[in-house]
Design a protein around this nucleic acid. Structure first.
Lengths: 338, 338
DNA sequence: TCGCGAATTGACAGCGCTGTCATTTGTGTC
DNA sequence: GACACAAATGACAGCGCTGTCAATTCGCGA
């Protein structure tokens, strides 16, 4: 039969309420008592019943992770974030629920309300690209549900979660190309309204400006974060009479597309053209030549965002916008300018 | 303030227990009463409190989806399954929890036990490759937790879930190549102990045998479901003095690798070599030329598996091993033999 | 030693629902 | 119309925990 809190209480010769206090890490329990109770819990392998806790305590011990499954970034990226969030939740014995939401759909808010009404999450983790959708944030605020974001586009006060300095990373990537002697460096931009696209473009511009190179508008082509859009963007670039010697794509999928298109045109990477991307998806390492890219620690970011959220949810602090480092993964797709 | 079952009861002039009966779709409620109660629920936008239901009713309304995040198949595939499972759960107002488990790790069973002890899922959905791991199944059976599998390798009695006839699909794919006049058809095998690898290989052999073609062992090369392994496998094949005219890879990642390697060797796809895959990942459509492949309706499969599970969990029936159809997505990477 | 405020502990009700079982209402039969 | 039986409904306790508040114990200065 299931071990209940009452059983632990009896074993430790204290009242159920005291066990509850220990369980919830409350103050005003003597060290001696606390140890006795913890020992009893351990010995009996006590597992609090989440529903009972939730019912009596008016909190769900539930974190919901929201993502957009319509217009989503690489599923690998989301999967890694998910694993990170889960890991953080496990550490604090919270459970996690995932919720796909279609940002562009009309019933977006209704579905959010249903989530809140049905499951009462104690907090919510937002993932790109739904970190900054105003009606969503408003609704969460109204409902009093704390939330943390992974890579929010804005960083106003009260925004908690995790970010990577993507602009800095993009700049570093372009500086890597500059250091290799490239001067005609193209950029394939991501979906326009994603924060990621803006930052990476900004980093690209910053690097060029710092190097005293005037931006050539024809070298900045629109993409959509997909392989196919990378192929198309590359075709446009290769059709120019004065081709770029390097292409920095705003993500790896598009970079792979660029490399693919290079094959079509008989352009050898990296000999004739350097290509680099962003994200370090598994494919990046597998491509031939292996893709130079920026590694974004998605898993760690998911975890950190969730930890910030849990800090707030558990009343342990105000939470903050944590920052994680990036690393340039210089592989074989970039080389000195021909 | 929250609307409770009691409030609905008052509004409908019945006892709380009767409302509970309607909520749970129990028998022995007159149609008249049922309608009245349903109307009241609707009018008041009543949302049963899951924890209260779970606590009093001794069930969690929770389905856990287990996956292997160590040795996992394409994350897109899992993400789609996840969305499907979620959809089924939503329909029946069950909540879903995801659990990454490392099958090869020592604490596998301990983590499973923790999941059961902590969350009491009413049922579990197993995804490849952890659909057939004996200790896991044993443990679930001991704990009395019903489970359904997506593409289980075995189909003994009592196994419920969903499967696609992968062998048939693989055979159809190879027959497509045969119909194009190919006779030297290579196969890149997936990870050895995955059911998927076995079936696809079996289908390949079946098709060849049916066409009266003796299998040439050098044309069957081992891969590992990754892009890189596809590249390597292809290099081996291209190094043969008598190259194949077509390559059937056991999944799309490897097929993409084969196409990539073809580029290295100056082999034109599909002119000099036909390539086809399996799974229809997003990349397949984006490749150039677009990859001929087998579409596996992962999302639908996730949903169906969950529906079978829920049938059992809800005491509605015994559940079964549902079967979904496949479709050959003939695109541009396969053509008549040169 | 006594008294007093603070720290610690406990008693008890109740979170919102369902299981059990008793009671009432309806249905068909002669 | 009376009776037997089934269907429909309700009363009530209790699931396992926590909030509230009262009771007890402790530490320490007078």
């Amino acid at each position: 039969m299931r071990v209940r809190l009452e059983d632990v209480a009896r074993a430790a010769s204290v009242s159920p309420k005291t066990v509850s206090r220990v369980l919830n890490d409350e103050a005003n329990v003597s060290d001696d008592t606390r140890q006795r109770v913890l020992a009893a819990m351990q010995a009996m392998d006590y597992r609090p019943h989440p529903s009972a806790r939730s019912l009596a305590g008016h909190r769900s011990f539930l974190v919901a992770m929201l993502y957009d499954n319509n217009d989503n970034p690489a599923s690998t990226y989301l999967a890694e974030i998910q694993d990170g969030v889960l890991e953080a939740c496990d550490e604090h014995r919270y459970s996690m629920m995932v919720r796909p939401l279609r940002m562009r759909s009309g019933d977006f808010i209704r579905r959010l309300d249903a989530l809140i009404a049905d499951h009462h999450p104690d907090g919510v983790v937002l993932t790109p690209p739904i970190t900054d959708y105003a009606p969503l944030l408003k609704r969460l605020r109204e409902a009093g549900v704390p939330h943390a974001s992974v890579s929010p586009a804005h960083r106003g006060k009260g925004i908690i979660g995790v970010r990577m300095d993507e602009q800095q990373a993009a700049r570093a990537m372009v500086e890597h190309l500059l250091a290799l002697g490239h001067r005609r460096i193209a950029h394939v931009v991501g979906i326009a309204d994603h924060g990621a696209s803006r930052w990476r473009l900004a980093g690209y511009r910053e690097a060029l400006a710092a190097a005293g190179i005037a931006e050539d508008p024809v070298l900045v082509v629109q993409g959509a974060f997909t392989f196919g859009s990378g192929v198309e963007a590359a075709r446009k670039l290769f059709a120019l009479k004065k081709r770029p010697t390097a292409v920095f794509a705003a993500n790896d999928d598009m970079a792979a597309g660029v490399m693919w298109a290079a094959g079509e045109y008989g352009i050898k990477v990296p000999h004739d053209l350097s290509v680099c991307g962003f994200d370090d998806i598994p494919l990046a390492r597998q491509l031939w030549p292996a893709l130079t890219t920026v590694r974004q620690p998605a898993r760690e970011m998911g975890k950190l965002a969730a930890l910030q959220l849990l800090e707030v949810v558990r009343g342990r602090g105000p939470g903050r916008l944590a920052q994680v480092g990036f690393s340039l993964e210089v592989r074989d797709s970039t080389a000195r300018v021909p």
